[in-house]
Design a protein around this nucleic acid. Structure first.
Lengths: 248, 248
DNA sequence: AGGAAATATGTACTAACAACACATTAAAAA
DNA sequence: TTTTTAATGTGTTGTTAGTACATATTTCCT
């Protein structure tokens, strides 16, 4: 190994181009997208039946190698666009997985993103038969380390959902408070008290009362709301305002 | 480009080894470590004077290419060990930076970690002259995108410090409440009320009263405390206990 | 017309947060 | 030795957010 030629990652051009090339450019990098939607009162993730023998019958996440001339974020938008037909979508990087044996075919380091999309959105097209929305709750195993990736993204989603108005990316533009509460319950896997839930949502002041009613429910319809436009975000907050003082 | 041969990242062995190799293994992957310490009432970061002409005079973070047979986490531990002589250190992955032009010598995607170490620890040896502890507050620019990386890690540190007992990795085993408060203030860049601070720390129940006193201060000495051993963590919490219900 | 199912709303208890002041101790200076 | 200085140590009050909990109302369905 030519590693004594390389003292730091901040390499001189000559070093990259000569000695190190054979050793150090032997790692592939990919992105994997955990694409969530909310449908039939369940949180679901877009997954595809693995075509590898090692993992036959198991689902895997949607991913691809990063192209040499492509930003990491762009690569995940590309996958989203290719698979769902949607851009203009909530997307956030979560973690990079790099254990040496995570891919059976060689060294592949992958960066995981999660994405939130509205299942009922018009542009959404899932054209492939092997491509499916799978309820998160019923996934026990996946191909590669994709169950770990899914769980990590799910944890992150749960964290985000408590602090930021990202959940609305999973809902249509107009929604009732019941739908919103059921979605929180599906994500957090808890039951929430309706009165306290409404109070807390009211305090956050994220919503606009549309003065419209549901019209497709077999019971007394609720009011419809939408998210205030200033809270629409296509990716997680880039820190506006310092940390809230939770320590003294 | 041979990308139509490659339908997903979950490649068959043949695909990796043949057609795609030239195109897709042309990205290098590195790790960069943002190593924090607390010294002289300031939060400092370990940095090295850049040896590249493009960035002469600027500091850069400590990083290196990931070796083909090395886990991502291992790579950052290696850097830490090489540079500080310390293992058994707090380390957490933060974000992966992958814009195509971030490195002047070629395509290098880097995964950033931050690390917390006790400046006064015996094992700590900084032997290189260009390697320095630089107060975070006085860093305006760095080489590459390292200022962005630093800021991202600093944001993450601030988030972590509010929720988890990670800050103690920056302190010696025994410390006074004043030292602890000053450290919070240095990290969060705010002033904290002493009485409220102590109350909140007491509630968290992280500390053991050692029944010892400071002996090196030019004023009335305070009591010394240490962190309860069960809260010592070498890396961030792997989620124990579900999310606290901040929404209803 | 009656029943089923969901909407809508308020109060009392508790826990955490913010603002704030004074007596005590030890070292340093006079 | 006395005085001064600078930090430690502690408690109360008002406010805000969190939790638990029950009843009247509206709409659909039969």
């Amino acid at each position: 190994m030519s590693n004594d030629l390389i003292k730091s990652a901040h390499l001189k051009t000559a070093e990259i181009e000569k000695a190190s090339h054979r050793d150090y450019f032997n790692i592939a990098i990919s992105v994997d997208c955990v694409i969530f939607c909310y449908h039939e009162k369940e949180l679901k993730v877009l997954a595809i039946k693995s075509d590898l023998e090692d993992f036959s019958g198991l689902y895997s996440l949607l991913g691809d190698l990063v192209r040499p001339d492509e930003d990491l974020d762009k690569a995940s938008y590309r996958i989203l666009m290719e698979r769902t037909g949607m851009d203009d979508v909530y997307l956030e990087q979560v973690h990079t997985f790099g254990t040496i044996d995570r891919h059976p075919s060689g060294r592949v380091i992958t960066t995981a993103y999660y994405s939130l999309i509205d299942a009922k959105h018009q542009k959404l097209r899932i054209n492939n038969n092997d491509l499916q929305w799978v309820p998160v709750k019923q996934i026990r195993r996946m191909a590669f380390d994709h169950k770990l990736i899914l769980d990590t993204c799910l944890d992150r989603l749960r964290e985000q959902v408590m602090e930021h108005p990202v959940i609305f990316n999973l809902l249509p533009e107009k929604f009732s408070l019941r739908e919103l509460q059921e979605l929180y319950e599906a994500i957090l896997q808890t039951d929430l008290d309706r009165r306290n839930f409404r109070k807390k949502i009211a305090i956050k002041d994220w919503l606009i009362d549309l003065n419209e009613m549901e019209d497709d429910v077999p019971h007394r319809p609720g009011k419809l709301y939408k998210l205030k436009p200033e809270y629409r975000r296509k990716s997680a907050r880039r820190k506006m305002g310092g940390p809230r003082a939770a320590i003294a």
